[in-house]
Write a protein that binds this DNA or RNA. Structure first.
Length: 268
DNA sequence: GTTGAGCGTT
């Protein structure tokens, strides 16, 4: 895919992988190839893409044939502006050829960049700045974060992303939970009363500040009058429902299925 | 159409 026409890892033998971070989501291997190839013999360039969206993850792996060239590329391309973004080039660590990194360290004693490891502090400061602003925490959870978590849960690779995402929105989770808990409580009571009394007599006006909102559940209950059409339709509608697993829109079916009589007493 | 910490595929 992101290779030069080959499938899978070509020949990682005697190859040194460089990790290119901070690249744009639109940057492709073809865009990085000329840049890295200028500083050495690039064996292969691989850009991991998202499994669900297929979009670039924002980093690429460049494999060099020689370590000295790779080191040179790191020193030269690290901090280079690509597509309007400053890329970060460094030796891969957790790659399949992590052993190469050891050699990479050796090559660090290159005659050229023997001790001239002077990196641009501005770049690091830039990222640190992001950390201070906590922007990194709120990011990445744009939309399909929750979906992908449910769909691709149990992956080692995703675990890191999920973990970061989870711990990345503590405030949101706290607020959401509190609100959710409150809603669940009121909903639970409502359900309990409803369950206990099939014939709703007086709905709580306080619980229904929004009339249009009340219409929603009422409309759902309306078709109940037509059981003949409700049976087959119900299934179809369930399929379209965003949450077919849960009978209740948000509350757990257990709550409605376990209406403690004591609760009813206390409620009344 | 979006986003921005990090470590990889057939």
């Amino acid at each position: 895919m992101s290779h030069f026409g080959r499938s899978g890892p070509p020949d990682i033998a005697d190859t040194y992988s460089l990790l290119v971070l901070n690249i744009t989501f639109r940057t492709t291997a073809d865009d990085l190839f000329p840049l890295f190839d200028k500083y050495g013999k690039v064996v292969d360039i691989f850009i991991p893409k998202d499994r669900r969206t297929g979009e670039s993850r924002g980093f690429a792996f460049v494999r060099y044939k020689y370590a000295d060239e790779a080191s040179k590329a790191v020193d030269r391309l690290d901090g280079r502006m690509v597509d309007g973004r400053e890329i970060t080039v460094q030796f891969a660590k957790y790659g399949p050829n992590a052993e190469r990194i050891q050699k990479g360290r050796i090559i660090e004693t290159s005659p050229r960049s023997k001790s001239s490891r002077s990196r641009s502090p501005s770049r690091r400061r830039h990222r640190d700045d992001y950390k201070d602003k906590d922007y990194r925490r709120r990011s990445r959870s744009r939309s399909y974060d929750r979906n992908e978590r449910d769909r691709y849960r149990g992956r080692d690779r995703d675990s890191r992303r999920r973990s970061r995402s989870r711990s990345a929105s503590p405030d949101r989770k706290g607020r959401g939970r509190g609100r959710h808990d409150d809603e669940r409580h009121s909903r639970s009571r409502s359900r309990s009363v409803d369950s206990r009394s099939p014939a709703r007599h007086s709905p709580s006006p306080k619980r229904s500040p929004s009339p249009k909102r009340s219409i929603s559940p009422q409309k759902s209950a309306s078709p109940k009058k037509s059981p003949r059409r409700e049976s087959p339709d119900n299934r179809s509608r369930d399929g379209k429902s965003p949450t077919p697993r849960s009978v209740s829109p948000r509350g757990r079916p257990d709550a409605s299925r376990s209406p403690s009589p004591r609760n009813s007493n206390g409620d009344e």
